[in-house]
Design a protein around this nucleic acid. Structure first.
Lengths: 120, 120
DNA sequence: GAGGAACATTGACGGTCGTCAATATGTTCC
DNA sequence: GGAACATATTGACGACCGTCAATGTTCCTC
């Protein structure tokens, strides 16, 4: 079978559902609070925020991991670790392309978090 | 133990300015990332999220600290600690009323965080 | 298949965080 | 002033986190 080289810039987007109603709508259950706090914890690190920003501002919608190490000035394992945390929180997706791995934001996940912070 | 609502239910709101442009607008500077991450860190705990939700859903716009201990099922010092973290992040304001201290959300601060998460 | 390149994982270290008991600070009422 | 109440602070402990060097894994190229 012939290997076809895809040059799709966009990554597949997972289905995202809001974890809960906005904070101001009803009192958060203990379970929902646990879930939400894990997502915010992913945003509670300056390196991860910069990585997220690098992905979010990328014209192509995705960035090679190899282009993420130098901008944040951390070691390659550290960057890999942070990308994993973002991915496990569902804020980011990844896809292998040859030797490289491309990362992209999941806009719906960010929108879901925005929804949780909505006020009245 | 429930406190009766007195007059002056509303707390004074501090002036809030957004720390930075949305993540997707331009790449976050190291300094802005540090600032933003501290705010998200305040949201990265289930107890604090529930406290924030209790304040945000309060009809009166503020809640006596004495009414926050039982709902989150933590010790009084622990609740006091979390309220302090929320206050230092600028997400909450407090005001003494007699023996009690009333806490209320700072909606503008939540809106500022929502702004940072805006996508394109 | 061997070598190399890109990314992930492991293990270890220092630092920070959440929690509570004990105690301090501040306020009201007698 | 003193007792009683409400909240904040201190100190200690275990758990978790960010970081890097070393190593593992996967994939391309020759």
């Amino acid at each position: 079978m012939t290997m076809v080289l895809r040059d799709l810039p966009l990554l597949e987007q997972p289905v995202v559902e809001a974890c809960c109603a906005p904070l101001a709508a009803e009192v958060l259950s203990a379970g929902d609070a646990e879930t939400l706090s894990r997502q915010f914890a992913a945003l509670a690190d300056p390196v991860r925020l910069r990585l997220l920003s690098l992905l979010a501002t990328a014209e192509a919608g995705a960035v090679c991991a190899c282009d993420l190490v130098e901008p944040v000035a951390k070691s390659q394992p550290t960057v890999s670790h942070h990308l994993k945390v973002l991915a496990e929180a569902g804020l980011v997706t990844s896809e292998r392309r040859g030797r490289n791995v491309w990362y992209g934001v999941v806009p719906a996940a960010l929108e879901a978090l925005r929804g949780a912070l909505a006020t009245r």
